[in-house]
Amino acid sequence: MKLGTKRNVLIGLLILVIVAAGAVFFALRTYGAHLENVPTALEIMALVRMKYVDSISITDLARAYAKDGTIAGMLELLDDPYTRYMNKADFTAFEESTEGSFAGIGVSVDIKDDYVVVVQPYKNTPGYRAGLKPGDLIIAVDGKSTKSMALDAAVSMIRGPAGTTVVLTIEREEDGQKKVSEVRITRAIIHIPTVEYEVIKDSSSNGPGGSGPIGYLYISQFTRGTSKEAAEALSEMKAEGIKGLLLDLRFNPGGLLDEVVALCAQFMNRQPVLYVVERDQKKQPVYASNYQPLGLPMVVLVNEWSASASEIAAGALKDLKIATIMGKKTFGKGVVQTIYPLTSGGGMTLTTSRYLTAGGNSIHKIGIKPDIEVDLPEGSKEDVQYNAALKLLRGKIK
Rank of each mutant, 00 (worst) to 15 (best):
R394P: 03
A323W: 01
C264G: 13
Y52E: 01
K201E: 15
G295M: 07
T330G: 02
K282N: 13
N361E: 14
S145C: 07
G22F: 06
G241D: 10
V9Y: 12
Q221P: 04
G254Y: 08
I139K: 10
T338G: 12
V374I: 15
A307N: 13
L132E: 03
L257G: 11
G207Q: 08
Q284L: 11
A262I: 05
M268N: 01
G131S: 07
V335I: 14
E304A: 06
T324F: 01
E311Y: 00
N124F: 06
D152Q: 13
E236F: 09
A72D: 15
K112P: 00
L350V: 09
I368F: 01
M149C: 07
M50W: 03
D371F: 00
Y218Q: 14
M157Q: 13
E236P: 10
D54C: 02
L390T: 02
V276D: 05
G209H: 05
H364T: 01
T194Y: 01
T194W: 00
G4N: 12
E99F: 02
S235H: 13
L35M: 08
F222L: 08
L245W: 01
G143F: 07
E240G: 08
K333I: 10
V119K: 09
L376K: 08
G22M: 08
L350W: 07
V384P: 02
R159T: 13
Q221F: 04
V276H: 04
T338A: 14
Q271R: 15
I219G: 08
F102P: 07
S57V: 09
V119Q: 09
G359W: 00
G127V: 02
D371G: 15
A323G: 09
V260H: 04
I372F: 09
R7N: 09
S97N: 13
Y197N: 14
G127P: 04
N290P: 01
A46E: 03
F222G: 12
K243F: 02
E259F: 08
A313L: 04
L61C: 04
R129V: 09
D142C: 02
L75N: 12
L42Q: 11
E259Y: 09
T98K: 12
L317Y: 01
E232W: 06
V38R: 14
E171I: 02
D280G: 03
A41I: 03
A154H: 01
N387Y: 05
S156D: 14
T59R: 11
I11Y: 08
P208N: 04
R224M: 09
G241L: 08
L42N: 11
K179I: 13
D80N: 05
S97W: 00
A154W: 02
E43D: 10
S227R: 11
E76F: 05
A64C: 06
G176V: 09
A130Y: 03
D258F: 11
A150R: 12
T83F: 07
I242G: 12
T186H: 01
Q292A: 14
T30W: 05
L263C: 09
S235I: 04
